[in-house]
Structure formats: structure tokens, C-alpha cells
């Protein structure tokens, strides 16, 4: 799949933002006043900024409100509802915490649940796609939820929880890569099933429909070199998970190290998310002979 910057930024930052909102909603840390204002500003900047970024790739962003209508079948529509609900409910909680010095615990818990549901619905947009076998697995929601929780804990300054969650998220990340690498081969979709021509013999794509490129090739066929991919995976693991855990477990670490852990995590997760899209093989590539399977 084409690793479009808009979707990479959207999924990374909204995941972080809603993760932070989740922890704030649960009262971890139980902040009020100016500290709360600062933390909520970060959370809303990430969550809203990410959602806005997602509208950049739309052909007609001015019609975006129509995306609220099909919640019965569409995960994208459900995400629209859940994100707005989470932002509104957490907005009430944040207002009370910042300006009234009060924590409305039930509202916070509801907001936390809605934040979790928002990230789940985002992950389901990808996990539901049978056409991308690498994503069509329960590990995809586990991966995105794990990262959102770990990143949220990191931003919320929950150091012990963050270290534990990062370790879990790293394990899920590695599993997602491992399982994903053989997903297309296991899916049973190949050039023979795509063309129905497998019975008489081995099928090979002989000539594409056009000499030039097209929307399908631009959007769905992105081939990442194996060496390139291995390097980026190492970068993602080191900066996204490893280094932040090391920085977090240093006893009595100053704030500066915490900030460094966050920046390192963000850089690593952007690399991971780039790979999430760039390595995802859409089955339509088979018709163009672009997939080995």
C-alpha cells in the first residue's frame, strides 16, 4: 500500500492523543489547573491534529460530514462518531479539571472508554480488509491498541506502566511482522485464484493493461526491499520501544529523559507506521504480477 504521509500522521498521532486522553480520563495522573491544561492541550493537539491530517487525502473534504451516516456497516463512519464523542466527553471532563478544579470521575471513565473505542475502530478499518492479508488479523487491533496505550502512558508520565506496556507492545509488534510476512501466502489468494487459470498450468503475468502507471499501481503496489525493511524494523524497535524502556527504568530520571523517551518513541513509531503501510500487500498487485506469491 502507498505509505501516504496523511495516513501515517493520522494513525500515529491520533493513537497517541487518544491514548493520553484515556489515561487522563482515568485520573492517571489526577491533574487539575494549569498542569491539566498543558496535558489536555497536548492530547487534543495530537488527536484532533491526527484526525485533520486524515482529511487531507480526501478527494472532497468539504463533504466529510456525510461520513457520519453509515455507522451501521462502516468502521470509518463508526470511527467518526466515536472520535467526536470521545473528544466531547473528554472536553467536559477537561473543562471541569482545568477551570473548576474538579474531576468528574464518571465522565472521565466514559471518556476513557470512548477513547479506547476510537482507537479500536481506527484499527478495524485496516483489520477488516481481507484484500490486505497482512492487516486482516487480530494482531492489527492489538498492535494499534497496544501502541496507543503505551504511548498514552508515556505522555501521561506513568513511567512504570509505560515501560510494561511498551514491552508488551514490542512483543505484539514483532509478532505482527512475523505473522504478516507469511500472511499473503497463507491467505490462499494468488495469481492462479485471481485469474482462475491455474488448472492448465503455471500462470505468469505477461503484459500489463497499459504501458504507463495507473491509480491501482500507485495506491496498492508498493514494494519494499527486504534489506530496507529489516533496517527500518530495527530502527522502529530500537527507537520506538527499546530506548524508551531503558530511559524509563532509570531510577529518579529527570524530566528531560522522559521527554527524550517520548521523542524517541515517536520517531520509532513513525518508522513502524511507514512500514505498516509500505509492506502491506494488496491482492490486486497479483493481477500485475507484482507479488511473489
Amino acid at each position: 500500500m502507498h505509505p501516504a504521509p496523511s495516513v501515517i500522521i493520522f494513525t500515529t498521532f491520533s493513537g497517541l492523543g487518544f491514548g493520553l486522553l484515556l489515561f487522563l480520563g482515568l485520573g492517571l495522573p489526577p491533574v487539575t489547573g494549569w498542569v491539566a491544561f498543558f496535558l489536555y492541550a497536548i492530547a487534543y493537539a495530537c488527536a484532533v491534529g491526527g484526525l485533520l491530517a486524515s482529511t487531507f487525502h480526501l478527494g472532497h473534504p468539504e463533504r466529510a460530514l456525510k461520513a457520519f451516516t453509515q455507522w451501521r456497516t462502516s468502521w470509518l463512519s463508526r470511527e467518526a462518531w466515536l472520535s467526536v464523542a470521545a473528544l466531547l466527553v473528554m472536553g467536559i471532563y477537561a473543562f471541569a479539571a482545568v477551570f473548576l478544579d474538579t474531576r468528574l470521575t464518571p465522565v472521565g471513565i466514559l471518556g476513557a472508554a470512548l477513547s479506547l473505542a476510537t482507537v479500536s475502530s481506527t484499527s478495524m478499518i485496516y483489520a477488516q480488509l481481507k484484500t490486505v492479508p497482512r492487516w486482516h488479523h487480530w494482531l492489527t487491533p492489538a498492535h494499534m491498541l497496544g501502541l496507543s496505550l503505551a504511548g498514552g502512558a508515556l505522555l501521561a508520565g506513568q513511567m512504570t506502566v509505560a515501560a510494561a506496556l511498551l514491552a508488551v507492545a514490542a512483543a505484539v509488534q514483532v509478532a505482527h511482522w512475523q505473522v504478516g510476512d507469511s500472511a499473503l501466502a497463507r491467505s490462499g489468494t494468488n495469481l492462479a485464484s485471481a485469474t482462475g487459470l491455474g488448472a492448465p498450468g503455471r500462470v505468469r503475468a505477461f503484459e500489463p493493461p497499459h504501458t504507463g502507471t495507473n491509480y491501482l499501481l500507485r495506491e496498492f503496489v508498493h514494494v519494499v526491499g527486504r534489506r530496507h525493511s529489516r533496517k527500518l524494523r530495527l530502527i522502529a524497535l530500537t527507537f520506538g520501544y527499546g530506548l524508551p524502556v531503558v530511559l524509563l527504568v532509570i531510577p529518579a530520571a529527570p524530566h528531560l529523559l522522559g521527554a527524550l523517551a517520548i521523542l524517541s518513541h515517536l520517531a520509532g513509531i513513525l518508522a513502524s507506521r511507514w512500514l505498516f503501510f509500505a509492506e502491506a500487500e494488496h491482492v490486486v498487485g497479483l493481477y500485475y504480477g507484482k507479488r511473489a506469491a
Binding site: 487525502h57 478527494g59 463533504r63 461520513a67 490486505v132 491509480y215 491482492v283 490486486v284
Partner: peptide, 25 residues
């Protein structure tokens, strides 16, 4: 009513849908 998000083309295994580069639908 199409916002040109492209998700339907992602969901189609056959490459039957194409987002028009000029019209955005």
C-alpha cells in the same frame, strides 16, 4: 455523496474501482 476517501478501492480485491485524479470521486 462520495468524499473520495478511497476505502472502497482498498476493499475491492479486483482493482475494479479507481479514484479519478481530477474529479476526486
Amino acid at each position: 455523496a462520495c468524499i473520495g476517501c478511497g476505502l472502497c478501492a482498498w476493499a475491492c480485491p479486483y482493482g475494479a474501482r479507481e479514484l479519478d485524479a481530477l474529479e476526486g470521486v
